[in-house]
Amino acid sequence: MTLYVLCFALFLVGLYGILTKRDLVKIILSSGIMGYACNMMLVLFGYRREASYPILEKGREAAAMVDPLPQAMVLTAIVIELGIISLLAALAVRLFQKYRTYDITKIRRLSG
């Protein structure tokens, strides 16, 4: 249970970052943190008490294993997140070139 609460706390940290930080880079990091929290949650859901890693090895009985599927999902989610974050980083740099600032509250040409 503690782990779930901590996961949720991490998620809130990310959300807090997005809501309060002005720096583009910090916002990007916050969104990354949110993603990690979700990924951890996903891995936690696949966890089974007293179980081993889900790999078949020579000379090892197929004992109780944790669920491997969430791990595969997390791997995919990480890749996606990587894509999003690199895109965000690229956009942040280009935004700086155009607006001469990293402050998101000053980047608001689109309004109304």
């Binding site: 916002i27 969104s31 997140e81």
Partner: peptide
């Protein structure tokens, strides 16, 4: 992108 990543989470 920021909003999409929130929704993706």
């Amino acid at each position: 992108a920021v909003m999409a990543s929130v929704s993706a989470s």
